[in-house]
Structure formats: C-alpha cells, structure tokens
Design a protein around this nucleic acid. Structure first.
Lengths: 139, 139
DNA sequence: CCGGTATGCGGGCATATACCCGTATCCATG
DNA sequence: CATGGATACGGGTATATGCCCGCATACCGG
C-alpha cells in the first residue's frame, strides 16, 4: 500500500494541533511553580483585565464554547481562585469574579509566564502568529 | 482594576491554542460527510502510510502520549476501522492495523480533507507553519 | 537459569473541548 | 398582562490530552 499516495502530504491542522500541544506543555511546565495551567491562567487574566463577567461573556472573550468555559471554571472555583455569584439583574446568569486568591495566583504566575513568553516569542517567526490569528477570525 | 498592567499582553500559547481549535473545527466540519474527525483521520493516515504498528510506535509517530493514542484508538476499533491484534513476537504489545473499512474511510474522507487543506493553505502565510513545527521539535 | 531492570499497556484521575437538550428566566409584543 | 421567542445555564455524552501507577512480559548479566 501507499508508497507515495497523495494522502502522504502533511496535514496543516495536525501540524498546528501538534504545535499547540507542544506549546501547551512548555507553558504548563513554566507555570507549574504557580500551580496553574496556561488555560487556567488565561481565564484568570481575562477576569483581571475585564472585571467580573457572566459565563457566556467570558466564553466569548476566550473564544470557547460556553459549556467548556463553565467546566473550566470548576477547578478554579474549587480552589477559590474564582467566585461564581448569581447576577442580581438576571437570575439566569452567574457572574465569574476573581477572588483575592485568584489575583495572588496571577501575580505568582506572571514572572513564569513572562519567561515562557519571552523564550517562545524569540524563537518564533514574527508573522507566524498573526497569520494564524487572522485565520481564526474567519472560520 | 488593571487599566494597563503588563498582564494585558497577548499570550502566544493561548493564541496558538485558539487557532488550533478554530482549525480543528474547520477540518472536522469538512470531514463530517465521511464521519471522521481530523484526529481520527490522521491516525488512519499514519497506519495507511506505515502499515501496522504497535501502539507505542503509533503514538511516537503522532507525537502523542501513549495512553492518549490508546484511547484515541478506541472509537476507531469500535467502528471497525482499525484492528488491534496481539503481537506474536511480543506478548505485551498490541499491533494497530487498518481494516478494509478503515482504508475505505480514508478514501471517502480524502477529497474533503484535500478541500479543507487547499482552502487553509491558501490563506496561510508560507513560513508560519514551519516556524511552529520547528518549535515543536525542541520543547 | 535467575534475578534485576527495562518496556508495552491498561486503568485511574484530572483537565480541555464541543454538541445537544432541557429548564429557568427574560423580554417584546399583542 | 399573557404569551411566544430568545437567552443563560446545567447536565449528558463523546472525544482529546497527559500524568502516574501497577501488571505482565521481555531482555540482559552473571
């Protein structure tokens, strides 16, 4: 079978997924001293930047499915880094808010994140990310 | 809070993960008529290209954790696209092999995959992927 | 041949991700 | 104000992903 079928060309999506896995491992390792994963760190950062947000808005901000965001909040709430309070103005909604412990976790993680970020950006072609980000805009 | 703290810079890892999610959705949608996800398609393709392989080798080939590959094979085995036979030469190992149905699934998916691939590669800066792939090499 | 180390796998645990459905609530319109 | 459509969520289901641990088997020295 195979020898040289056209199916043997590399798949862009798989290459990208692989790169994302590798990158995730790098950032997760860097953030390990702060006991945060890059996904969790990014959620906390959104809340730090924008203030308390209902889950749906938070999900939009992260370009994640709403239910995914809901579940990603679970470990953060369990560890007391995020608080989920009912919205007095809309009893359907739950407002996610950074706790003091959450702010402290960001502060503890920041230097490690910055190190990883510098390390990676130095090794990355300048336009590479922009090109991918643009693609993510027009699915 | 915040206003302009240094935490407000974009995270390369998150951008990449986001791009990967978006790309995955595009390929998954393209492959839906063939009832395959891009991750599954890629596993089948490796088997088509290299022939039967023990799970560990397959995982290495895909740059995946061994246990992850083992689990990713489950749906494929359940659907009869992949067969998992004991290795006569090493009773610890299980050899994953493409079935005829698996080969047919690849054939059915190929045109859709090619369409997505062409669509994406046309919209992607040439060096972008190479840069990321190189990064994945040296974690 | 026997014991110690190395390797292949499965299973448990935790997170990440998306889709669908049902429920509670909200809101605009008649 | 009543009602129908829209919206916010939770939970179920399925896949994807990685770590660790334990078991079975393999392999290598002595």
């Amino acid at each position: 079978m195979s020898s040289d079928s056209p199916a043997d060309q590399p798949c862009t999506c798989i290459a990208l997924r692989r790169a994302a896995r590798s990158m995730t491992a790098i950032y997760d390792a860097a953030l390990r001293p702060a006991a945060l994963r890059i996904t969790q760190f990014s959620i906390l950062r959104i809340l730090a930047r924008l203030g308390p947000l209902p889950v749906t808005r938070l999900a939009e901000e992260a370009a994640l499915d709403r239910s995914t965001m809901g579940r990603n909040l679970d470990p953060l709430e369990r560890r007391g880094l995020v608080r989920l309070d009912p919205d007095p103005a809309d009893r359907r909604a739950r407002i996610a808010a950074l706790t003091e412990a959450g702010a402290a976790a960001i502060a503890a993680a920041l230097p490690h994140w910055r190190a990883a970020q510098a390390e990676i950006d130095a090794r990355l072609a300048p336009g590479a990310l922009a090109s991918l980000a643009a693609l993510a805009q027009h699915p």
